[in-house]
Simulated assay, not measured.
Amino acid sequence: MPSSFLKSPDNWLWLLVMLTLFWSCQSSDNSLPILGQRKAVTKTIDGKVVTDSVDHTIPDFKFTSQYGDTVTAHDFTGKIYVADFFFTTCPTICPKMKMQLKRVYEKFKNNPNVALLSHTINPEHDSVAVLKEFADNLGVTGHQWLFVTGDKEAIYDIGQNSYMVTAQEDSSAPGGVVHSGAFILVDKDRHIRGIYDGTTEEGVDKLMADMDRLLTDYKK
């Protein structure tokens, strides 16, 4: 697939729909599918070399939140969470995304099993202080919804290679970046269980329904 294909948000969303449909068809029960390509892992067991495959998993990470503290994957142990990528000066889809994600925040507010994680893709501008002001203006309090900044290369890498979203610097685009409007649902084992259009009410309604579904599965 040519790299230019993924630079278009429309093409990117189409690809996500196809991936979701594919993995849904592979699911043998009524649970949410685990998205992403399985990885071959070679181990030595009782002196024998064995190759197995494991599900796509979000790796550990290290960023800084709007409170100035360090955030790693271990902070989400025992939680499902929704991840997204944005920047505070984005003039196009980000305001829509944040209003939609606030709906998720309000629905699951104070639920200890749910967290939200928003990564800035413009860390040069979006400092800790800027992210704190942005969160305050949204009416976000506490540590359930974290806005993180950090090394730009690390943010772009985890977005593209782990969360399966894309951001492309483009001087001709509003705000200088073309990026996806996806919300990514991650389970307690760091597996991606769904990718949703975060710019629409319909997409976020589906996300919240799937979050309820996933939480119910854990109760079972």
Rank of each mutant, 00 (worst) to 15 (best):
P2I: 09
P2M: 15
F5Y: 08
F5E: 06
L6W: 13
S8C: 13
S8D: 15
P9F: 08
P9V: 02
N11Y: 12
L16H: 15
L16Q: 15
V17G: 13
T20S: 10
T20F: 11
L21Y: 12
S24C: 09
C25N: 10
C25L: 14
S27V: 06
S28K: 09
P33R: 06
P33S: 08
K39S: 05
V41R: 10
V41L: 11
V41E: 14
T44K: 09
T44G: 08
I45Q: 08
G47E: 12
V50M: 10
D52R: 03
V54Q: 11
H56D: 10
H56N: 07
D60N: 15
F61K: 02
F61N: 00
K62I: 00
T70Q: 08
V71G: 01
T72L: 04
F76C: 02
F76V: 01
G78P: 11
I80R: 07
Y81I: 03
V82N: 04
V82M: 01
A83G: 09
A83R: 05
D84M: 07
F85T: 02
C90N: 12
P91T: 05
C94A: 08
P95H: 05
P95A: 00
P95L: 03
M97T: 05
L101R: 13
L101S: 11
R103A: 03
R103V: 09
V104A: 02
Y105D: 06
E106K: 06
K107A: 05
K107T: 15
F108W: 12
K109P: 08
N110Q: 11
N111Y: 14
V114N: 11
V114T: 09
H119W: 14
H119A: 06
H119Y: 15
N122V: 03
S127Q: 11
S127N: 12
V128Y: 12
A129L: 08
V130S: 11
K132F: 06
K132D: 12
K132T: 01
E133R: 00
E133M: 04
F134M: 04
D136Y: 09
L138Y: 14
L138N: 10
G142M: 00
H143F: 00
Q144R: 01
W145R: 02
T149W: 14
T149I: 04
G150A: 02
K152T: 02
Y156G: 00
D157L: 01
G159P: 09
N161I: 01
V165E: 14
V165R: 05
Q168S: 10
D170R: 13
G175L: 06
G176E: 13
V178L: 07
H179L: 03
S180T: 07
A182N: 13
I184Q: 08
I184E: 09
V186S: 14
D187P: 06
D189E: 15
I192Q: 09
G194I: 01
Y196F: 12
D197K: 09
T200V: 10
G203P: 15
G203L: 15
G203Q: 11
M208E: 13
M211I: 03
L214Q: 09
Y218W: 13
K219Y: 08
K220Q: 10
